[in-house]
Design a protein around this nucleic acid. Structure first.
Length: 477
RNA sequence: CGGGGUGUGGCUCAGUCCGGCUAGAGCACGCGGUUCGGGACCGCGAGAUCGAGGGUUCAAAUCCCUCCGCCCCGACCA
């Protein structure tokens, strides 16, 4: 256990990020460069994310399945854009069981290809459609520069893969799942994301169209936090995913894919974290409430512990932890659990035993202002309401921060200034050249063309030509 | 992959330029005691083939050669 304070976010954001993760025991570096070990506390958060998403996937008619880790190299090569996009970051197995393989196997970077192959076997008739399958798993992409959770060689995610009879249905599915992600991000993680469409340069390799939810991190950089792709008929044609329609005519399917990864943990850390450490949204926090007993000696301990146990019994509906360690002081425990982002702390000491009270301290409001003393009676209801308040307050705070750092530039020079420390929302004519110029001049990219507030005529911020849409420009992770 | 930096107990580092006793410190860890409502303190203790390999030397963490890892900055990406 380390005692020192974290680096200040304002002084060294990336160092703050690294240390928060390691010191809260969310993850650690693995012996292989670029790989991470997700430790129990980080994985517990991921499990809560999984549950929140999986519930939504099931509610929208999807089923889970598992596809293989290895994909024949030739599969990747079937879709031209796909192979171009992914070949630089593939891990390839060439030896198996001591023998050189006849055909190299790719460790899946994503599963469109194997799943496409299977779908072509399974789908014969319009009666088989739609196919709505999701997979929870891991994938490998050989990244050169890695960061815990944000970009690692191997990461965990879910990938949904669906096949439909019509283009319209596929587009509806793509948008439906983007809505699911948005709902999850906003209402479970308190991360106020902006849903939008990716530009052609930023879209998924092989997609007709990509949608994204973009979140603003505490340093104002953007993080693509989930994506949903309308694959058109690209993979259906590459893998012969065909069906007979009502008129006995052979048709290609329309497919989609959508994914959200452990990267989202990074989004939670960087959206809510402060100089004290993590700040986890109550709905996803592995520990929602921590009880710290306070006593000076065995006599006081004898009085306090029974009350702690009583209170614990009252709060069984919450994910609760009692920190009854004797080797560290209460003050140490306060900092310990604050760094780990536990939304609510309950202190129970001799005074509380006397008065029938407890002390409550909110993680989202530091110091005395976030502390209150309440009666032990009816505590469950008070805690429940408080957790809801905290959840709402965190979302509101994140939203206010985001909005305060989004600006609409009047001219190109101003766009330049804005993206140095925030997001710019500006008209864009849609040309690749204008997009590329912004990137070259400022390092900022188009994060998305927002679904809301993205229309309306104007002039392209770069070239001055007429533009029908707006885009967010920002530096990103 | 290019440019820069760095490797010394679990962590952060000193020592390296100018070779020389048993390689130090703080934190973390173990034991004992005093503490305990915002990161306690004292005492004792355990823990290192100084990134790896080779060379120079009576003697190498320190000088020379080769290799490797990691970090930062750039080109590619969920």
């Amino acid at each position: 256990m380390t005692e020192e304070k974290l680096p200040l976010r304002s002084e060294n954001y990336s160092e703050w990020y690294n240390q928060v993760i390691q010191r809260t025991e969310m993850a650690d570096y693995a012996p292989v460069r670029g790989c991470m070990v997700v430790r129990p506390y980080g994985w517990a958060l991921w499990e809560n994310i999984q549950q929140a998403l999986d519930k939504r996937f099931k509610a929208t008619g999807h089923q889970n399945a598992a596809f293989p880790l290895f994909i024949p190299m030739s599969f990747l090569e079937k879709e031209k854009e796909h192979v171009e996009g992914f070949s630089p970051e593939l891990a390839v197995v060439t030896i198996g069981g001591g023998e050189k393989l006849e055909e190299p196997l790719v460790v899946r970077p994503t599963s469109e290809t194997v799943i496409g192959y299977m779908y072509s076997k399974w789908i014969k008739s319009y009666r088989d459609l739609p196919v709505l399958i999701n997979q929870w798993g891991n994938v490998v992409r050989w990244e050169l520069r890695t960061r815990l959770f944000l970009r690692t060689l191997e990461f965990y995610w879910q990938e949904g893969h669906t096949a439909h009879a019509t283009e319209q249905e596929a587009e509806e599915e793509t948008r439906r799942m983007l809505d699911v992600y948005t709902d999850f991000a906003v209402n479970e993680a308190a991360v106020p994301v902006i849903p939008g469409m990716k530009s052609a340069t930023e879209k998924f390799a092989g997609a007709a169209r990509s949608y994204t939810i973009e979140a603003m991190m505490g340093d104002t950089k953007a993080l693509q936090s989930g994506t949903s792709h309308n694959l058109g008929q690209n993979f259906a044609r590459a893998f012969d995913i065909q069906y007979l329609d009502q008129n006995n005519a052979l048709q290609y399917c329309w497919t989609t894919s959508w994914g959200l990864s452990t990267r989202f943990i990074g989004a939670i850390i960087m959206t809510h974290g402060d100089d004290q450490g993590l700040k986890l949204p109550p709905r996803l926090a592995p520990i929602q409430v921590v009880i710290v007993p306070i006593y000076k000696n065995d006599e006081e301990r004898g009085k306090v512990i029974p009350v702690v146990e009583k209170v614990q019994q009252m709060l069984t509906e919450f994910r609760l932890k009692v920190d009854d360690r004797t080797e560290v002081t209460p003050g140490f425990k306060f900092n310990h659990w604050e760094m780990r982002g536990v939304p609510l702390r309950i202190e129970i000491g001799p005074k509380d035993v006397e008065k029938g009270s407890v002390a409550l301290a909110r993680r989202d409001i530091p110091g005395r202002d976030g502390k209150q003393f309440v009666s032990q009676e009816g505590l469950a209801a008070v805690v429940s309401n408080l957790l809801k308040d905290i959840q709402a307050a965190m979302l509101e705070k994140a939203r206010a921060f985001r909005d305060a750092n989004i600006h609409e530039p009047k001219d190109y020079a101003e766009l330049n200034t804005i993206v140095q420390n925030g997001w710019a929302l500006a008209h864009w004519c849609g040309s690749v050249d204008c997009e590329a110029r912004v990137k070259e001049d400022t390092k900022a990219t188009i994060r998305c063309i927002p679904l809301e507030n993205g229309q309306g005529k104007g002039k392209c911020i770069v070239c001055g030509q007429p533009a029908e849409q707006k885009a967010y420009f920002a530096k990103s992770y």
